[in-house]
């Protein structure tokens, strides 16, 4: 039994199943983070005092992380482009690079969290820290999820290239769309939490 349009696009929609699926999934993610950002606004508007982000958090560290994450969005595109041009080895190299950049981001995040905990800044300390840890924590889980996906496609998942190269390339594209979203969420988080 073959499910239609797993690889090729359906003519009247111009999409294959996975691409439509990932966009719908991201629509749901927008609602998830949208609800949290709305909560942030509501809590902040109602608060008597609200600290400026840079008084508590380190802007240079977060700026560095922003660069790391944006670079990883470039490398994931390069991975897809390399596969489109038929080179698995280059594609895998860029996948690995994306994974490593994700790892760097997570390590920096772990350093930041650790620093906060050592100076006694826990989520229970204030509403600002509570929403900071919740938003960045949930975003971190999304980064981790993406890293697992890239590790799989770099490793055992890449076997698919030899039997169905187009299907494999589509998978990287879809994973890349997700990765851009994770990147985009951070681009909102950075100013909202660190700068404003």
């Amino acid at each position: 039994m073959q499910i239609p349009f797993t690889v090729e696009a359906r003519p009247d929609t111009g999409l294959n199943n996975a691409k439509l699926g990932i966009w719908l999934f991201l629509a749901s993610e927008v609602m998830l983070f949208g609800a949290l950002f709305s909560s942030y606004i509501l809590l902040r508007v109602n608060a008597d005092v609200w600290p400026k982000g840079h008084e508590i958090l380190s802007v240079p560290v977060a700026a560095f992380n922003t660069v790391v994450l944006i670079s990883s969005s470039v490398t994931v595109i390069m991975a897809w482009a390399s596969l489109k041009m038929g080179s698995l080895s280059k594609g895998r190299m860029y996948l690995l690079l994306t994974f490593v950049l994700g790892l760097v981001f997570m390590c920096v995040k772990a350093y930041e969290y650790n620093h906060k905990f050592h100076t006694g800044l826990f989520p229970s300390e204030s509403t600002f820290l509570a929403i900071y840890f919740t938003l960045t924590g949930l975003h971190g889980l999304h980064v981790l999820g993406g890293m697992i996906v890239f590790a799989y496609f770099w490793g055992p998942g890449s076997k698919m290239w030899h039997s169905e190269p187009e299907h494999f390339t589509n998978r990287i594209e879809v994973a890349g769309v997700y990765w851009h979203f994770v990147d985009l969420v951070w681009i909102f988080l950075f100013p909202v939490l660190y700068l404003l």
């Binding site: 719908l24 629509a27 749901s28 993610e29 609602m31 998830l32 983070f33 949208g34 609800a35 949290l36 909560s39 809590l43 826990f122 989520p123 229970s124 509403t127 509570a130 929403i131 840890f133 919740t134 949930l138």
Partner: peptide
């Protein structure tokens, strides 16, 4: 289901934080 459930998930995460991490959302 796709668009209405995520805000409850967000609310659930916030309430879990309240209960487990001692926050006051």
């Amino acid at each position: 289901l796709l668009l209405a459930f995520p805000p409850l998930e967000a609310a659930g995460v916030l309430q879990l934080m309240d209960r487990l991490a001692g926050t006051s959302f």
